[in-house]
């Protein structure tokens, strides 16, 4: 339809102003020294050489990768499992769906404060039930805790998986049942292959989200510790930019995040092409 494009205009302009323009600005700022008060002053590749030599950056990147490896598979299995469990038409399932989404609705800060208490070794109910030690003072304890508490906030992936599972025509399952397929056969030969393209997309999105979502828990629960074990890239960017006011250098770090994202989007695009999802 002609001129319907105009209706998308506010959205496209919003994206250009709030995503496109900042992305270009980040590219420019990445090669400057900028405190936010004076400057920016062009410094060529100085930030890049600094980044390469910056052990704190590499440690943050490593922590982020550890977080991805710990959290993303758990989150995806939880989202898929919840979607498959709750896709039937039944009273229990329709009561269960909002409950599975509920932790996602809890504001991040409140959620972090809740876990700070749950994991508290003296007062927390987890300590009272399981007699756990203070997980957050141990590097791996903190890493695993932050990954685990992220597993509850899987609402978006859950509803997308749910909608995709629902879009599989029921006739296929009936045909499979008449063909003698049991539940496991139908799951492995029908459900999972048919959901694979979207599950792939969701996984990639979750990997990229890992460059973002762990900021609040790392900021409030562990403050990046113990011993920098939970200093992830977002927290490192935040500190560099807004605690030490090195906005130029922080842009260089942000640029690496763009590059990681671009690589992942490219991989996703090629995979999507193979699955004939996009042109």
């Amino acid at each position: 339809m002609k001129k319907t494009g105009l209706l998308a205009l506010p959205f496209v302009v919003g994206l250009a102003a709030l995503v496109g323009l900042p992305a270009v600005a980040a590219l420019g700022l990445a090669f400057t020294e900028f405190s936010g008060v004076e400057g920016p002053r062009f410094t060529g590749s100085a930030n890049v050489s600094r980044l390469v030599a910056d052990t704190a950056f590499w440690r943050s990147l490593g922590n982020t990768l550890i977080y991805i490896v710990l959290a993303v598979p758990l989150r995806m299995v939880a989202a898929l499992g919840a979607a498959l469990l709750l896709n039937r038409r039944s009273r229990t399932a329709s009561a269960g769906r909002p409950l599975a989404y509920l932790p996602t609705v809890v504001p991040d800060v409140a959620y972090a404060l809740l876990w700070l208490w749950l994991l508290n070794p003296l007062y927390g109910p987890l300590a009272a039930i399981f007699g756990t030690a203070d997980l957050l003072v141990d590097p791996w304890g903190a890493r695993v805790s932050l990954a685990l508490l992220s597993v509850f906030q899987i609402g978006e992936a859950f509803v997308v998986a749910l909608a995709v599972r629902r879009s599989i025509p029921p006739h296929l399952y009936e045909a499979a049942a008449v063909d003698g397929a049991g539940p496991w056969f139908a799951l492995s030969r029908l459900t999972l292959p048919l959901m694979t393209p979207v599950l792939g997309l969701l996984t990639l999105r979750d990997v990229i989200l890992s460059l973002q979502v762990n900021f609040v828990p790392a900021f409030l629960l562990t403050d990046g510790g113990p011993r920098y074990a939970t200093t992830y890239l977002p927290l490192y960017v935040y500190r560099t930019a807004f605690r030490y006011f090195r906005l130029g250098y922080a842009s260089t770090i942000a640029l690496t995040m763009f590059i990681i994202t671009a690589v992942i989007v490219l991989v996703q695009y090629r995979l999507a092409r193979r699955w004939r999802l996009t042109p």
Binding site: A25, A254, M257, T261, V265
Partner: peptide, 15 residues
Amino acid sequence: LMIPLSALWVPRFVL
């Protein structure tokens, strides 16, 4: 949807 917001904090702040 794929772009992590954390990469946009600094340039958006500057803008």
